[in-house]
Structures are given as structure tokens and as C-alpha cells.
Design a protein around this nucleic acid. Structure first.
Lengths: 191, 191
DNA sequence: CGCTATCCGGACTGTCGGTCCGGATGCCCC
DNA sequence: GGGGCATCCGGACCGACAGTCCGGATAGCG
């Protein structure tokens, strides 16, 4: 539904330019630094172009996030174990948290900006629903006695850009992920 | 430091009027409905007055949240068990989560608005630090082998206004709190 | 009752997200 | 190669908002 039959060449070029400009602005200043005016100017396009492609601020950030996490989503559905199907639920869960943690740690600023932009419908966002569904299924497989749906929300709620930056010391970029994995292990119990 | 020697009567009256106006606007529309212009108008004061009292949007919402949670904080530090000191850590933890959950469930809209306004320093906010310190101490007392500091952040991260509204069905207002308590129990293990 | 520190009000500014439409341009078909 | 049309572009424009500022009002004290 979002894809036209064919996208005109200039449209594709502009889309790429806008995404590149967005990530550049995110890198050089905080999330607040990314105003759509600035994105458009840096990308060398008009403001209207940004909105036509991405709908609004949230859509723009979501597209960037989607680009950064598509690989993990494919690995989770179609890839080899332990991420993909085939491994025991416990191993798949830890592998998944590792992958998601890596993305989150590497994109904490983008995460914060996206959380702030997605004011109200964060839990209806397709991307969120996918992560939640996957997590929920793995949890239910590991511990059928627990409330997998809620625990999946709880585990995801910890992937907060600000929290990640607050908990990541310089020199140990995977600290957050390890903490999440330890928590998940404690939740699953000594199974 | 925030208290003047004596607050003029009109200043105190205006402060109350602003807080009342804020909660009224929060109640009748979403968090976005609370613009400081509207608050000032509804309170019957000028815009400058709102800013002089509360600094900015975040300060206003924080003041309201503080008002709603002061009782719990006092009960936790000075009150009788199981909330206050004296009960076993496990019981205190569950009682604390019950109290915090009640506040969060009753103020989900305010919570959302506050989260959005406190863009960057959410984890430095004195109120957050208090809850985190308390939770962290109780967790450390119950399970010294776990990373209490991280788990306290994780438990608090689930108190998200949007998530609470998303998980609270009509007719079961305490559903969220029970889920949180079950999660905490699972974390503490079968001790 | 008068004086001063304090407070009030609302006009003002700069910025932002989002809309709109006249003009340009890529693309397909002849 | 060229013409016609659907698509896209750009940036002027709008309304709303957070936050600032200062001339004027007033509470409270002596």
C-alpha cells in the first residue's frame, strides 16, 4: 500500500538523500536537533518532499529504524538458528535479545527521538508488534505458566534510548545487553 | 531553595489555580491538550505566572505528579509495615509496587505527558531517583545475586503511561499492577 | 497610610510540524 | 525523437506552541 507501482528515479534519489541527512543530523546533534526543516535543507530538497515521502516526523524516524533493523527481523523469521527457527526457545530468546540490544545500543539517539515522536500509537506500530509477538511466543514456549504477553511488553519497555545511554559506560558498549539477558534468564528461572 | 521566605497570598492562590487547571485539562483531553497557554487561561492568570512558578512545562507536570505521589513516598520512608520499614523485603517490595501501580493507573495520562516533557533528564529527576533507590535496595535485600540497580530501572521502565492505558481493560483497573507484581515475584524466584 | 519588594499579565519572539499548489520533470507510448 | 500526462518538487505559508520580558499593579510591613 505504501509502494507505488514504480517510483520515479528522482523520488528514490530524494528518499535516500533525506534518510542520509537525517542520520547525519542525528549523529551530530541530539534528537531535538533533527527538525524537518533542517533535514530538508541538508538533503537539498524542499520540506514538502520530506513529508510526502514519510508522512510526518515519526514516519521519518521509523523508516530509519526500520532500515537498521530489517536484517534482524529477517534473521529471526528465516535465518539459521539460534536466531531463526530450530533452536530451543531459551537460546532463541537470548540470541534475539542480543541482536535487538546491539541495534538499540548502536542507535540510542535515534531510539529516543523515535519514542518522543511516536507520541501515542507506539504500541500499534507494526515494528513494535512484530518484536512483541516474537518475544511473547518465545517466552510462552519457555515458561507457559507466566504471562508472556505482559513480560514481552516489560522486556521491550527497557529498550529505551535514554535509559540505554544512561546505563552504557564508555568502553563497555554491550553492558546493557548483558543486563537484559541476565534479567531474562532470571525470569525464565533455572529451567 | 525553591521556597521563598514567605510566599505572597496571591502567589499561593495562583499556584493552586494553575495546578487545578492543569489537572482539569489533563482530564478532559489528552496530554497534548495541555498547552501552557490554555492552562494559564483556564486558571485565570497570565502565561508568565505559570512559567515563574514552575519553570517550564516539565516542571508543571512534575509538580502535579509530586503532589499525587507524596503520600506514597512518606509511607515508604516513615509509615508502618508493610510499606514502611520493618517488613521483610519481599513484602515491602510487593506493597511498594502496589502503591506505585495505583498511582500510575490513576494518572496514566499525566504520566505520559510528563514522560514526553522530560525529554532528556528523566533519570536525573529527584523523584525517579527516589523510586529507583528504594526499589534497588529492596531487590538487593531479596536477591543479592542479581543486578539490583538494573532490575530497578527495568521495573520502573514498565510504568509507562501509554503502556498502562494499553494494558488496562475497562473494568479491571488493577490488572496492570497485578502483572507487575507477578513479574517481580518471578524475578525474586521461589525464595 | 505610604513605600517597596514582589508579583502579575499578556504582548512578543523564534521555531516547529504540517499543508498547499503552481511549476517542473521523469516516463511511456507513438 | 518527441509529445502528453501523471507524478513529483519546492518553498511560501499557516497555526500552535514554549519560553521571554517589562511596564504596571498590589500585598504586606512599618
Amino acid at each position: 500500500m505504501a509502494e507505488q507501482r514504480t517510483e520515479r528515479a528522482d523520488a528514490a534519489r530524494n528518499r535516500r538523500a533525506v534518510l542520509r541527512a537525517t542520520e547525519q543530523l542525528l549523529a551530530e546533534g541530539g534528537g531535538d536537533h533533527v527538525s524537518l526543516d533542517r533535514v530538508a535543507t541538508l538533503a537539498g530538497v524542499g520540506k514538502g518532499t520530506v513529508f510526502r515521502r514519510f508522512g510526518n516526523r515519526a514516519g521519518l524516524l521509523q523508516a530509519l529504524l526500520e532500515e537498521r533493523s530489517r536484517e534482524l527481523r529477517e534473521a529471526v523469521t528465516d535465518g539459521p538458528p539460534p536466531l531463526g527457527p530450530g533452536a530451543p526457545a531459551r537460546e532463541r530468546l537470548l540470541a534475539f535479545l542480543d541482536g535487538l540490544g546491539a541495534i538499540a545500543e548502536g542507535n540510542a539517539v535515534l531510539l529516543s527521538a523515535h519514542e518522543q515522536a511516536c507520541a501515542e500509537d507506539k504500541y500499534g506500530d507494526p515494528s513494535y508488534r512484530f518484536w512483541h509477538g516474537h518475544l511473547s511466543a518465545l517466552l510462552a514456549a519457555g515458561r507457559p505458566d507466566l504471562d508472556a504477553d505482559f513480560l514481552a511488553h516489560a522486556l521491550l519497555s527497557v529498550f529505551d534510548g535514554d535509559l540505554i545511554r544512561h546505563l552504557t559506560p564508555p568502553g563497555d558498549p554491550r553492558c546493557f545487553t548483558r543486563s537484559v539477558q541476565r534479567m531474562a534468564t532470571a525470569l525464565l528461572g533455572p529451567g
